Simulated assay, not measured.
Amino acid sequence: MPGISGQSRGRWGRSALFAIAALFALAPSLADAQTYPNRPIRLLHGFSPGGAADALARIVSDGLSKRLGQPVIVEAKPGAGGNIAAAAIANAASDGYTLGLVTGAHAISGTLYKKLAYEPTDSFEMVSTLVYYALVIAVRADSPAKTLPDLIAMAKAKPNELSFGSVGFGSTHHLAGELLTTTAGIKMVHVPYRGDAPSVTSLLGGDVPVIVGTTVLLAGQIESGAIRGLAVTSPTRTPLLPNVPSAEEAGLKGYDVRTWAGLVAPKGTPADIVQKLNAETASMLADPAVKKALETATGGEVRGSTPEQMRVLIRSEIAKWSKVIDDAKIARIE
């Protein structure tokens, strides 16, 4: 080659070889992305069959199955606040055939546990958020607390004498209650239960005077008059409980707790596959029937995202809950 030395030609040759090698290395993943999916996909979640997360997962599996042309099979791996499922997702093959449905508890685990078998953001490729939904602070219908300010006044008059129930230690419900105490400057004792149903039974039986519960599961009891909703935990009212004020309306300024659900894949899942999943998820969420089903199942707001927006959400949630845990002096789990 005129004007180019032998040494330069050698460097050009080596560069060409590296480029060709890189293309060969990329070829399998490009081929996979072009044919994806060509077999069933697993959708894991970390909560009990029949619960809210399971209901969400089944709506999503049906919506994605129709768009991807392959079955999306829901698999529950309950335990440790979703950590068992998250570890299974993180350790699965990064080929797009294992996905995970995670909730707000995923970010809480990122700060509540001293050690995890995965890293809440870096062990996953984010696909999209799905839905955001509020919780509700509730008492029995015959409670002397008619409003949230009433409850706060009662708790101030009797520090650590009132208790509040939740679906379990380290849940979003638990930490919503802890944030209530620190924001309002009161002290209440947390009583963990194994799910919404036992906490509601305990409230109705008079064993616990207050619970932080899931709106969609308490709506019937609130509408019937058996339970009084004092406030929802979002800044504005939820359509599911239009007569229950937000905590902000009730005078608890700056109080905002909304849990969420979203889709993740194992770290290293090819970018083309993640993009395809994100696009099909967006298409699914725009479907009026799917949107209605998700809103009915959660009482929340359907909202998709880019993968990066979901990653930013989880990081911000980890920082938020870390402060709540520190302020409430909750011991982190080994």
Rank of each mutant, 00 (worst) to 15 (best):
P2C: 13
I4G: 14
S5P: 04
R9F: 05
G10P: 11
G10Q: 12
W12N: 09
L17C: 13
A27Q: 04
P28A: 06
P28F: 05
T35Q: 10
R39N: 00
R42C: 12
L44T: 00
H45K: 10
A53S: 07
D54Y: 03
A57C: 03
I59K: 04
I59E: 08
V74D: 04
K77T: 15
G79E: 10
I84E: 14
A90S: 10
A92G: 15
A92R: 12
D95P: 15
L99W: 03
G100H: 11
T103V: 09
G104W: 05
Y113W: 05
K115E: 08
L116F: 12
L116E: 06
Y118W: 14
D122P: 04
M126I: 12
S128M: 05
Y133T: 14
V136A: 14
D142L: 01
S143L: 00
P149D: 08
D150A: 12
L151C: 11
L151W: 04
I152Q: 09
M154Q: 10
A155Y: 00
E161T: 06
V167S: 11
G168V: 02
F169P: 05
H173P: 09
H174L: 08
E178Q: 09
E178L: 14
E178Y: 02
K187T: 00
K187N: 04
M188W: 09
V189T: 15
R194H: 14
A197R: 11
P198V: 11
S199V: 05
T201W: 06
L204K: 10
G205M: 08
D207W: 09
V208H: 07
P209Q: 01
P209R: 01
L217Y: 10
I222D: 07
G229I: 10
T236K: 14
T236N: 04
P239G: 02
P242R: 11
E248M: 08
D256Y: 11
T259L: 15
I273W: 06
Q275M: 07
E280V: 11
T281H: 00
A282Q: 14
D287I: 04
V290R: 12
E295I: 04
T298Y: 07
T298W: 13
E301R: 14
S305T: 00
T306H: 12
Q309T: 11
Q309L: 14
R311F: 09
L313P: 12
R315V: 01
S316V: 09
I318F: 11
S322I: 13
V324R: 08
I325G: 15
A328W: 01
A328R: 07
I330W: 07
R332C: 04
E334H: 05
